[in-house]
């Protein structure tokens, strides 16, 4: 891997993350690795290392963090938050990072696909005639899709699609 040049990193990034709701505790981290040790994802996917992610944010590796796919691997189990002696609240921090990534339009295709499903059907699983017939057979009410419920939350925008190619899973 080529050398990382600190001059090209963004010193503002750590402040940016810390200003997000939930990101406040970020700079208290003293890299004790308790979060990494408690994380159930980390043993399966070495690239997802809470301690290293914090370090990358503190160093200002904005591009590397926001455009990565590993920040989306968090299972939100809150183990890291429970064990942190510095009250960093890493689960909240990773939400803050993900929110920033979404703002910068760095969302992995899986999530974009979910978004379009939600927008189209108002739910993550499409309910068609086949399903509803089966439900009737069991005496269950028919499900109607109300995608219009999400119009306010998910406005039309194509920026996600354009940036999708940047993200690999």
């Amino acid at each position: 891997m080529s050398k990382i040049n600190l001059n090209e990193l963004d010193p503002e990034f750590k402040h940016q993350v810390a200003e997000q709701p939930g990101g406040e505790g970020l700079k208290a981290c003293f890299a004790c690795k308790a979060c990494t040790a408690a994380c159930p994802v980390q043993p399966l996917e070495k690239r997802y290392d809470p301690r290293k992610i914090i370090r990358m944010v503190l160093l200002g590796m904005k591009k590397e963090v926001l455009e990565s796919d590993f920040i989306w691997l968090c299972s939100s189990c809150y183990n890291c938050q429970e064990v942190c002696p510095q009250n960093v609240r890493f689960t909240e921090v990773i939400y803050a990072i993900k929110n920033l990534a979404a703002k910068e339009a760095c969302v992995p295709p899986g999530l974009t696909a979910q978004r379009s499903l939600l927008k189209k059907h108002g739910r993550l699983y499409e309910v068609g005639e086949f399903e509803n017939e089966k439900r009737l057979k069991f005496g269950l009410p028919v499900i109607a899709e109300h995608p219009e419920d999400f119009d306010a939350l998910l406005p039309d925008q194509n920026s996600q699609q354009t940036n999708e190619s940047n993200v690999t899973t």
């Binding site: 891997m1 050398k3 990382i4 040049n5 600190l6 001059n7 890299a31 301690r51 290293k52 370090r55 990358m56 160093l59």
Partner: peptide, 15 residues
């Protein structure tokens, strides 16, 4: 300044 970042274990440099 050239160094290996102690936590990330990656080579870095700073001018």
């Amino acid at each position: 300044i050239e160094f290996v970042e102690p936590l990330l274990k990656e080579e870095m440099e700073l001018t």
